[in-house]
Design a protein around this nucleic acid. Structure first.
Lengths: 197, 197
DNA sequence: TATCCTACTGATAGTCTCTCTCACTTAACT
DNA sequence: AGTTAAGTGAGAGAGACTATCAGTAGGATA
């Protein structure tokens, strides 16, 4: 993937970063819709063509989620005696706990941007459909059942659905940690109410 | 809203219908992306300007869900002794049971189109976020708790999430009734596993 | 060091969704 | 019949995104 050796690769990485930084800065100050790709390109000192070479759409500058793979990895590493929901709570705590305050603040700013812009929110939710499939597979592996098992799908959907519901209703300009707390409480509620796989 | 009295209103309703029919026919034969608004307008014998006067975006021709309000109404009418999930199952059965085979076929064709086109799928999922809020309120009213109660939100999200999960993984070109059966089975699973409000 | 080759880039032109404005027509009301 | 308000079409234009093509700079080779 990313060689990092060679001037070419380093330059590419720098351009990628420059575009992303310029874009997020402009989004923050002007708003998402009010910012054109042309402005981003100019601020990052590249041509509009180059913008689209690095990001297939304007949305992608914001959407890309670095935490997702970390969560999956952490989930897979949780001890087998934990229930699926307990394992999820533990991995959330582990991944977010490992973030620096700066990273956490940036992540939540990104979340607010996504929740606030319909275009981005829709795109994010669609991406979560993919996340759902991955989660269903991880669950299936954990309990030794096929991933297309109805109970596995329903359980995965229920857990993810509850999480999204909390995300959509809690993260709107709230304190940084509110979402985390409510997410955990919602998961505890599902667990306590007897939802099992 | 729709008076239906007066030539003006009738003409408007006819134009709305003509555009929608032309659009869906073209989408079916050419595909969604391959069909331009200009083509739809021409087929419906209106100007492109008029298209956007009736539908704010190209997506909206497909997205608008006539069943949603029916479901909410039916849900509200279910006897109080039914659990929320039982009430939901009953209203699904009632609303879909009242559809003619033609209506049912059209509805499922619409669903397939939405599931298959990323743009539409994303938009639909975002609209479901609004549906979620309505559902949470209906639930809250049913159990006599505030709608922003965490358990209410988590429960609503879990139920809706399981439903969406089944929808996304079952309705892809399957038999018409597969989604209905799996949806009902998923709800039964949630109920049986002890999920309560 | 000189020379290819390949990657990346910028410029240009074009498509399509969607917005806005303006003039024209036609339904509805007095 | 005359007036008002609503619906329509035409046109210009913004902005996201695509395709093409020529120029250029990195990286390998002699």
């Amino acid at each position: 993937m990313s060689d990092l050796s060679g001037l070419r690769e380093r330059k590419k990485a720098r351009t990628h970063e420059a575009i992303q930084e310029a874009a997020l800065r402009l989004f923050r100050t002007q708003g998402y819709e009010a910012t054109t790709v042309e402005q981003i390109a100019e601020a990052a000192e590249v041509s509009p063509s180059t913008f689209f070479r690095y990001f297939p759409t304007k949305e992608d500058v914001v959407i890309h989620d670095a935490l997702d793979p970390l969560l999956f990895a952490s989930f897979a590493e949780q001890p087998a005696q934990l229930s699926p929901i307990q394992a999820l709570r533990a991995s959330m705590a582990a991944v977010f706990g490992a973030l620096s305050p700066d990273q956490l603040a940036l992540e939540f700013e990104r979340q607010d941007l996504i929740v606030g812009v319909p275009e981005l929110r829709a795109r994010m939710l669609d991406d979560l459909a993919t996340t759902f499939r991955g989660f269903a597979e991880a669950l299936a592996a954990r309990v030794g059942r096929p991933a297309d098992d109805l109970a596995v799908r329903a359980f995965a959907g229920a857990v993810l659905g509850a999480g999204i519901a909390v995300w959509l209703t809690a993260s709107q300009g709230e304190e940084v940690s509110v979402f985390m707390k409510e997410f955990d409480a919602a998961m505890a509620y599902l667990d306590d109410s007897g939802l099992r796989l």
